[in-house]
Design a protein around this nucleic acid. Structure first.
Lengths: 206, 206
DNA sequence: TCCTTAACTGGCCGGCCGGTCAATTATGCC
DNA sequence: GGCATAATTGACCGGCCGGCCAGTTAAGGA
């Protein structure tokens, strides 16, 4: 039974609708009327619960980002033990899987970049630290080459994964590669790990 | 001396202003009045020369994309001879330099992705083909490992470079890395080449 | 020189958007 | 059962935006 008045559910409905519209068309192009219609509420109710369009956008971002941060943190902490090649391979695959399952996150990051957003800066900073520490540890243990700044390794890691989900579709159109998308994802994941860990030169002639 | 009427110059002024405003705030958030003001013309003149706001945005994209395509093509054709590691290293560096000198291109690509644009699909397709052919040739000559789809190599190449310019600034803030930006660019270029060609594992234990 | 063409202007309009407000109705606490 | 509180509604507003139009002025070929 649905309560006739359920503010918590209403907030959620609004946030869900807002996320969909905002991520699809951008904040500027989205209208509160449309969000209200999609959420099945009145426009005024949005202002009642969130104050303004911008504040609503902010809430949408924070919600997703918290979820994202939690997933990442769980990922890193779940996989305890000495970080080595296998662990980082697993982390990379887990990150890949996460974006695969949450394509909205990719669009969210893109929008935030374009409006150079800093609302979620703190959340992001912590995450970065965690990842960098892991990599640095691997370096001191001699498992990774230590002539590269660990921050750069992390950035490359994120770049390869995010970029795939960013440009996968137009890229596939351009190249004429065909097949079920999930299979193409697997193929790229394989490539990604090969390049990231081993590079594109044949082994044995370095 | 400026001619009192110079339609060509006017078109350019409008395009320049439009590019700045569009790339800065996005199409939806940009207003024709602002573009007109910045270009020093009347709003009506924009419609006279370009028809509509969307058509203007389209022209902006095409102009930049043609320039981008020309630069890329020149890059690839200028460096004739058998493609090998050094050539691809050079190509990669040239691409890095290009984005370094044209940060607008990075934002343009981001906007186009978010509104899943297809206006410049043809231009992009040709470019992709050229790059892929080069890589494939290197593979058949045994200079690159051939167990990776050349399309994926190209994507990784673009990912690492574009991502740096995408997220350089927020990334630097998060990590607390400091120094003149040009120097940080050099450092990352170094990293990028190392990772892309050799991977992050220490050599000799593959 | 004249006349067609096109560059250019200022004023205007319909429409929609974000936001407000006063009124109504359900909720939960005492 | 009342009563404060908050959820919810629909009507409404000022403002701005993209686009249009009627008119003016320069350019350039015949």
């Amino acid at each position: 039974m649905i309560a006739r008045r359920d503010p918590e559910a209403t907030r959620k409905a609004i946030l869900d609708a807002a996320e969909e519209v905002f991520l699809d068309r951008g904040v500027a192009d989205a209208t509160t009327s449309e969000i209200a219609r999609m959420a099945g509420v009145t426009k005024s109710l949005i202002h009642h619960h969130f104050g303004s369009k911008d504040a609503l956008w902010r809430e949408v971002k924070l919600r997703r980002f918290r979820e994202y941060g939690d997933a990442q943190r769980t990922m890193l902490e779940e996989s305890e033990g000495p970080p080595g090649e296998q662990l980082l391979r697993d982390s990379m695959e887990m990150y890949f899987r996460f974006l695969q399952a949450n394509p909205e996150m990719v669009r969210l990051l893109a929008w935030m970049y374009l409006e150079d957003d800093s609302d979620c800066g703190d959340l992001d900073r912590d995450l970065t630290e965690l990842g960098v520490d892991r990599i640095r540890q691997s370096q001191t243990e001699g498992r990774f080459r230590d002539d590269i700044d660990p921050h750069h390794i992390l950035l490359a890691f994120l770049a390869l994964t995010q970029h795939w989900f960013h440009f996968r579709d137009p890229f596939l159109e351009d190249t004429g590669l065909v097949g079920p998308r999930s299979e193409l994802d697997e193929q790229f994941l394989d490539t990604l790990l090969k390049i990231f860990f081993e590079g594109i030169l044949p082994r044995g002639n370095a």
